[in-house]
Amino acid sequence: MEVKPPVPQVPPAVWSEFKDLQEWEKYHQERADNDKTSEALSAIAEAIHHFPGGWIVTTSTEKIFNWARSSSIWPVTFGLACCAIEMMATFASRFDVERFGMVPWASPRHSDLMIVSGTVTIKMAPMLKRIYDQMPDPKWVVSMGSCANSGGPFRHGYHVVKGVDRVVPVDVYVPGCPPTPDSLMYGLLRLQEQVAQFQKTGTRPAPAEPA
């Protein structure tokens, strides 16, 4: 004999009973009634379109180029060590830097940014330099984690480059061992600010050739 548990009876939802919804609708109704600014703006836009070439926006080329650069930074997928796991987490859906226009790209020739995520060994440094050289100008480098910043815990090892800035010029240093995705994302946002100022910074000098 089968015993069925009693099913709790839920009263059907009535939309009109939700207070929040009513207030929300009321707020927007009032806002639309009082919104004189958008009406004025659309009137101006209407008027501008009657001029010849009125739809052209005038600005400085540097400003618009930098806006484009800073809002579509493509980092080359270049993972060296455990920091790369955090970098992948930053790229993935939970943190999702793609909403800032950053698409991890599997080719240095289409990339603007190299995130050096991990320990740079003396054996790996020429390959890193080569990937950097393959990227088209203008290009930026984020040094991620203690190892890439200074050698980190392996600084006194015989095989470790004591900071990736001895190989390529670095724009943003992200500390941490490893940095959390939040830290890296903060660094990337600071880089965006830096990229937006590109005309003030100018071209950076190449690193001095070793004697």
Partner: peptide
Amino acid sequence: LLGDDWEGYPLRKDYAVDTPQAPYR
């Protein structure tokens, strides 16, 4: 493990670890 142009044997006690060596350190 090391590059073919490496000089010295790094796990020996008399190997100077922090010696600057061109081009990267």
